[in-house]
Simulated scan of single mutants.
Amino acid sequence: MTRAASAKKAASAKKAASTRQTASAKETASVKGTASAKKAASAKKAASKTSAAQKASKKASKGAAVKKAPAAKKVAVAPKKATARLKGTAPAKAVVHPPGDESPTALVRRARRINRELAEVFPYAHPELDFENPFQLVVATVLSAQTTDLRVNQTTPALFATYPTPEDLAAANPEEVEEILRPCGFFRAKTKSVIGLSKALVEDFGGEVPGRLEDLVKLPGVGRKTAFVVLGNAFGRPGITVDTHFQRLVRRWRWTGETDPDKIEAAIGALFPKSDWTDLSHHVIWHGRRICHARKPACGACPIAPLCPAYGEGETDPEKAKKLLKYEKGGFPGQRLKPPQAYLDAGGTPAPPLGAG
């Protein structure tokens, strides 16, 4: 072989080796690139899963918080005291949510039984203001605000003797009326009210007291309470008189937890037939004045102690309780009240209160 051929062959071999080396390098780079890409894709996928898991966890946490919200609200809605109520609730038109654990049906039965018991204790319960006609009753009721019926009854004879009709009182000298009404307290405001309502009666109703609620409440000084006193006792039209005694007792007996007089009226009206409303008012008010006092109720001498969920708030000892009863002229006026002992058992104590034992 010639030297030229040998050199050519060596060059060809060197070129082939170089070509194989380049191909190997490319193959290696390709493999590395593919592995790197796969690794990057895997990392990206893992990161995506982690992000999705975090989002799902956050969403689940948020959902759990939303689901727990009603439970927290439910705890707030369930008050420990029967008088608690949510703000903004509509006036009660039916027995829907009585306070405590008592069912609506049980509440109606207990409330009506209490009224029947009080009807036996106070069969002649009536408005304790002296009056002879609707005009005298509406004036006396307006004057009874912030004072006692006894004080009003001591004042009105002189007033009605001097001004017997709405026309007379409408034309009266305010200073003279103030002197007559001074013992009632707030005599200037009350003078303005009775003269104002007298003028309204003369100008708008021909000098007669109207027999409709919507007309009565238009008179100066006359609200729903006064209007129902007049309607129930002068016109025989049923109405619930929500005075301070009535409000206090119906909450103490857990007939309602409302505090607004209009809502109390609606709630109690749903417990009784309309025909009972006027007498019910008298029974409750008389009981509040004579036995179930605001600060020291005479629980030990109370005829409805077994039905009262508040039994024990006052004096339970029979002898001490009897001293808390408010008698007038040797007894409760205008009704046949049995002596307190008649409502006690053989052992000298009332029957166990509602829910006891």
Rank of each mutant, 00 (worst) to 15 (best):
residue 251 R to E: 13
residue 299 C to Y: 09
residue 217 V to W: 01
residue 169 L to A: 01
residue 274 K to Q: 15
residue 7 A to M: 08
residue 17 A to I: 01
residue 80 K to E: 13
residue 134 P to L: 00
residue 280 L to R: 07
residue 98 P to F: 02
residue 311 Y to Q: 00
residue 63 G to P: 01
residue 315 E to W: 00
residue 273 P to K: 06
residue 87 K to E: 13
residue 213 L to W: 02
residue 207 G to D: 14
residue 40 A to S: 14
residue 341 Q to W: 10
residue 317 D to N: 13
residue 235 F to Q: 00
residue 282 H to G: 04
residue 85 R to A: 12
residue 292 C to W: 03
residue 178 E to N: 10
residue 175 E to L: 07
residue 281 S to P: 08
residue 256 T to W: 02
residue 117 E to M: 11
residue 179 E to G: 06
residue 330 G to C: 04
residue 193 S to E: 11
residue 288 G to N: 07
residue 173 N to H: 11
residue 349 T to M: 14
residue 83 T to Q: 14
residue 148 T to Q: 11
residue 101 D to P: 14
residue 213 L to G: 07
residue 31 V to Q: 08
residue 240 I to Q: 07
residue 181 L to T: 12
residue 14 K to W: 02
residue 291 I to C: 12
residue 224 R to I: 01
residue 324 L to H: 06
residue 79 P to H: 09
residue 289 R to I: 14
residue 317 D to I: 08
residue 238 P to L: 11
residue 5 A to K: 10
residue 250 V to D: 06
residue 92 A to P: 00
residue 269 G to L: 01
residue 119 A to G: 14
residue 106 A to P: 05
residue 248 R to V: 00
residue 213 L to S: 15
residue 142 V to Y: 13
residue 67 K to T: 06
residue 349 T to W: 11
residue 190 K to I: 11
residue 271 L to M: 12
residue 47 A to W: 00
residue 198 S to R: 07
residue 46 A to K: 13
residue 111 A to C: 12
residue 298 A to E: 03
residue 161 A to S: 15
residue 25 A to L: 10
residue 209 V to D: 12
residue 120 E to A: 13
residue 277 W to C: 09
residue 109 R to K: 13
residue 172 A to L: 04
residue 283 H to P: 07
residue 307 L to R: 00
residue 138 V to G: 05
residue 292 C to Y: 02
residue 309 P to S: 06
residue 52 A to W: 00
residue 345 D to K: 09
residue 225 K to N: 01
residue 327 Y to P: 09
residue 222 V to N: 15
residue 172 A to C: 07
residue 238 P to Q: 03
residue 235 F to W: 01
residue 148 T to M: 12
residue 337 L to C: 05
residue 130 D to H: 11
residue 316 T to R: 09
residue 79 P to D: 03
residue 148 T to C: 09
residue 302 C to P: 00
residue 278 T to G: 01
residue 158 A to M: 04
residue 101 D to C: 10
residue 5 A to P: 01
residue 28 T to D: 10
residue 30 S to N: 14
residue 135 F to P: 15
residue 272 F to R: 12
residue 252 R to I: 10
residue 241 T to E: 12
residue 11 A to M: 11
residue 266 A to T: 08
residue 307 L to K: 01
residue 203 E to F: 03
residue 73 K to C: 08
residue 296 K to M: 04
residue 25 A to C: 08
residue 254 R to H: 10
residue 123 P to K: 12
residue 156 T to H: 03
residue 133 N to F: 04
residue 73 K to Y: 12
residue 231 L to V: 03
residue 199 K to Y: 08
residue 127 P to V: 10
residue 220 P to M: 03
residue 55 K to Y: 00
residue 256 T to M: 05
residue 326 K to M: 14
residue 159 L to F: 03
residue 149 D to P: 13
residue 26 K to W: 10
residue 8 K to C: 11
residue 135 F to N: 08
residue 54 Q to L: 00
residue 259 T to M: 07
residue 283 H to I: 04
residue 264 I to L: 03
residue 229 V to S: 02
residue 344 L to Q: 08
residue 224 R to H: 04
residue 46 A to F: 07
residue 117 E to G: 02
residue 268 I to N: 13
residue 128 E to Q: 15
residue 269 G to H: 02
residue 253 W to N: 09
residue 335 Q to Y: 06
residue 275 S to Q: 09
residue 209 V to W: 05
residue 198 S to V: 06
residue 64 A to N: 07
residue 312 G to F: 06
residue 220 P to E: 05
residue 302 C to H: 12
residue 297 P to G: 15
residue 11 A to Q: 06
